[in-house]
Amino acid sequence: MSFTPNVRRPGAPRTARRAISFYAALLIAGASAACSDSNPFLSPASRENRISTFSVWTLTGSNPTFPAAMLFTNLTAERPQVLSNGSVNFEVAFDLTGDGKVRFIPARALVPQSPAGAPVVGLQRSSSAFNALTRAPERGYTDDSTLVVGVNEVVLVRLASAGCIYGEPYYAKVAVDSVIASERRIVLRTLVNRNCGYRALTEGLPNT
């Protein structure tokens, strides 16, 4: 009676080979994403980007009931205040300098010790025109520090406390369209990408 031994051929077990193939595919996808500057692990975008125009008044010298700040995550103009729960109702407030330029004031710069904490806001001056700026950079922002710009200048905004599950920020662009000094009023044009982690700054449903 002959006996043929059950000899396993060298190499990784089939389950291990499948696992290796799966993780290799993930690495390849990650490498491809890095090359294309997109993130395949983001949730599908559900909110369309739209350009909006707002009038805000200055923190100083204007009617104290007029809106002097923006809550970009809700696309609303607000009068800055600390709410009853200790949080603040805005992300960036606005004022004018002596020479008529616009001062962007992040919430933490205005209310550094809000009882419930204020949102983290990064600002960055852009050298591009509003319409030419199609994608927000990941780096280069200064968190919670004021920024002064003139009419027709554009500011990039990173909202790190946007409420996304994994902590991804919202990104936005803001142009100072005009300053009506006699009214202490500032006209802003903005586009906020309210899809967690997406950096596209063009109108419509973003892909990245």
Rank of each mutant, 00 (worst) to 15 (best):
A136G: 02
T65W: 15
N74P: 01
N207E: 14
T190Y: 00
K173H: 05
Y141V: 07
P106W: 06
R50A: 05
G98P: 04
A19I: 14
P206M: 12
A29Q: 11
P137D: 05
F90Y: 01
A24M: 13
V192K: 02
A69H: 03
G140R: 08
M70E: 00
A129M: 13
P44C: 03
Y166M: 14
V102W: 04
V148E: 07
L159E: 01
A68I: 04
S32D: 06
A172K: 05
D177I: 15
T76M: 14
L75N: 12
T4Q: 12
S21D: 12
P80C: 04
C164M: 10
V149A: 02
R9Y: 13
R17C: 06
A31V: 14
A118M: 09
D95V: 02
E138Y: 11
A68L: 04
R185Q: 12
G11Y: 09
S126H: 03
I105R: 00
M70K: 06
T73W: 11
R194K: 13
S128L: 14
A116C: 08
G61Q: 13
E203C: 09
E183G: 05
G204H: 10
L83W: 00
G98S: 11
I28Y: 03
V102T: 03
V187M: 10
A136P: 01
A107Y: 01
V179Y: 07
S32R: 00
T190C: 05
N39E: 01
P5C: 09
L71F: 09
D143W: 10
V120G: 07
I186G: 00
I28L: 15
N89H: 09
D37Q: 15
A136M: 09
L159Y: 05
A19L: 15
P40F: 14
N6V: 13
P115Y: 07
V92H: 03
Q124G: 09
G150Y: 11
R139N: 14
L133T: 02
C164N: 06
S84W: 13
E183F: 10
F90K: 00
N85A: 10
A33I: 11
T73G: 05
A116G: 08
R18K: 10
W57Q: 03
C164I: 06
T134Y: 03
F66K: 11
T97H: 03
D143P: 06
E78A: 10
P137A: 08
L156V: 09
F90W: 00
G117E: 04
L71T: 02
N193I: 09
S127I: 13
F94P: 03
G167Y: 12
A69E: 03
P206N: 04
V176C: 00
S21H: 15
L133I: 01
V120R: 15
P40D: 02
W57H: 06
L123S: 01
P44G: 05
V192H: 00
F66C: 00
F54L: 11
G167M: 12
G11F: 13
A25W: 10
G100D: 02
V154Q: 05
Q124C: 12
R17S: 09
A19C: 13
F94V: 06
G30V: 11
A129Y: 09
S87H: 12
T53C: 02
E183K: 14
F41M: 11
S114R: 11
A31Q: 08
Y141C: 07
V149M: 08
V7F: 10
T4P: 05
R139G: 15
I186R: 07
